[in-house]
């Protein structure tokens, strides 16, 4: 079999990635191998479209049932975050419109620095692992990993909040310079306050993530 045909016979990576995430470690390798073998067979007999549709069906049905067993806490966390986002957007919409709360410069001076400072306080690999632990309940981690993740989310939340306050203070000082011009004072204060809003949002999400890690850690101790 030529190399190009061999690579064509591979099932779509994104779809198999979802199944790999959902499967218990004990059967991950044989299940993915069986599906890949059957996919290659279907590809040669019925063509690419039929093989892809068959593979997608297998992954969705199997992945869904395994996901509820292995990733239940992760699914709950994601649903809670979606609910929080929906309620926040709804509150913004019924107040003055969502666009009033979106300001790219305020976002850029809070979110990336918060992540970078957290990496500086802990390490890049610890931050990466902490987010991985949040989104993958299928792997086994020890108490030390959970403790480090608690530190990561605590640092991220506090750094985000302090940065939000810090940037707001800078904004207020700048506003003081144009305080006589009331027409530009009000919108400038509104934008400066957005930094604090983004900082509080980071603190809130990090707090939930931190509590989740504490809960998983105490579950491991019992």
């Amino acid at each position: 079999m030529s190399k190009s045909l061999s690579s064509q016979l591979r099932p779509p990576r994104a779809i198999s990635g979802f199944l790999s995430w959902a499967l218990p470690a004990s059967i991950r390798e044989p299940v993915l191998g069986d599906l890949e073998e059957a996919f290659g067979d279907k590809y040669q007999k019925h063509g690419m479209l039929s093989a892809n549709l068959w593979y997608l069906r297998q992954v969705l049905f199997s992945g869904y049932s395994f996901m509820l067993q292995t990733q239940r806490s992760v699914v709950m966390f994601i649903l809670a975050m979606i609910f929080f986002l929906f309620m926040t957007l709804f509150a913004m919409y019924i107040s003055s419109g969502i666009s009033l709360f979106i300001d790219i410069p305020s976002f850029l001076i809070v979110f990336p620095p918060a992540l970078i400072l957290t990496c500086a306080a802990t390490s890049y690999s610890e931050v990466k692992r902490a987010f991985g632990m949040l989104l993958n309940g299928n792997r086994s981690y020890d108490n030390e990993h959970y403790k480090r993740s608690i530190v990561v989310f605590s640092t991220l939340g506090n750094t985000g909040l302090i940065l939000g306050m810090f940037m707001m203070l800078i904004g207020i000082i700048a506003i003081g310079n144009v305080i006589e011009d009331f027409s530009s004072f009000a919108p400038a204060l509104s934008v400066a306050t957005l930094s604090l809003l983004y900082g509080v949002a980071i603190k809130l999400v990090s707090y939930v993530a931190q509590q989740k890690m504490i809960s998983l850690d105490s579950g491991l101790k019992q």
Binding site: E29, E36, E37, F61
Partner: peptide, 30 residues
Amino acid sequence: TIGALYTTLERLEKKGFVESKMGEATRERG
């Protein structure tokens, strides 16, 4: 579905009705 198959096989293995062992890895299985 492969999920239903392995779920039942794992249950049978837990009950002690089947035994399993890992075999060889082949190219067509990635």
